[in-house]
């Protein structure tokens, strides 16, 4: 993702505040039984100690529906298991105060509809992306962003999961997805699938005229796309670090 930090050696600022998205495991509690939690936690960690040891962890109390639970005991149990709790989400006021006393912030609870953001758009300018049935998609782990209007020159669309465009993608635009990209129209802009490194991501389009195609950072510009692959419905995937364009 583009950032605006350009540190210069001489007069660079000492720091800057930034907001970002980090994926951290969260411990979604369904029980208030500390013994049971500790037991299950230790079992889990035994399965993959390298993954869990010294890992940060968010304590999510939202499923407990304000049942009583001693936060201090819970935090001790997690620390003893070798993980670092970094905050709580949900819970009662008392529980949040108890967390604060342990220098753990209480993060804002997410509402039902916002629990999973269906879509992130890289540019403020692009508001056209519409997701359909966001409720349904919440249940699945892979989210698909559906865009029904043409993506015009200069617009950028970023999807955290798959991206399906049921319109054309104009020259001078850029579509990016962490998953697959489907374009049911002419693809004239840039299409980058698997932008977070997913090498299994693919690009499907019904008419390939793209300026650039990329999967997990392996890209090809228009000039390097052979003529016989152009103006045809294709799929693009990665095989041994090589981009394969295949007619479908």
């Amino acid at each position: 993702m583009p950032t605006d930090s350009q540190p210069t050696p001489s007069n660079s600022p000492a720091f800057e505040f930034k907001s970002g998205v980090v994926t951290i495991p969260s411990l979604n509690l369904f029980s208030t039984d500390i013994t049971a939690i500790t037991h299950q936690l230790n079992e889990k960690i035994k399965q993959a100690p390298e993954f869990f040891t010294n890992s940060s962890l968010l304590i999510d109390l939202q499923a407990l529906a304000n049942q009583e639970l001693d936060i201090a005991l819970l935090v001790d149990a997690i620390r003893n298991a070798g993980m670092f709790p970094i905050g709580i989400r949900g819970g009662t006021k008392e529980q949040q105060q108890a967390a604060n006393a342990l220098m753990l912030p209480a993060l804002s609870a997410l509402g039902g509809n916002n629990a999973r953001k269906p879509l992130t758009i890289a540019s403020k300018e692009t508001k056209l992306a519409k997701t359909e049935n966001p409720e349904k998609q919440q249940e699945t782990s892979v989210e698909t962003t559906i865009v029904t209007q043409p993506i015009r020159s200069g617009q950028r669309v970023y999807a955290e999961g798959d991206l399906a465009v049921i319109a054309q993608v104009s020259a001078g635009s850029e579509i990016m997805a962490e998953g697959n990209i489907h374009v049911y129209g002419t693809l004239r802009g840039r299409a980058l699938a698997g932008v977070q490194g997913n090498e299994n991501a693919r690009i499907f389009c019904s008419d390939l005229q793209a300026e650039l195609i990329s999967i997990a950072g392996n890209y090809r510009v228009s000039e390097d796309i052979i003529e016989s692959d152009r103006n045809a419905p294709v799929q693009i995937y990665l095989s041994k670090q090589a981009l394969i364009i295949q007619k479908i």
Partner: peptide, 14 residues
């Protein structure tokens, strides 16, 4: 044509 396309994008978002 490309400039018009850009303008259409702005029309639909700004």
């Amino acid at each position: 044509v490309r400039d018009s396309d850009r303008m259409l994008g702005i029309l639909s978002s700004k």
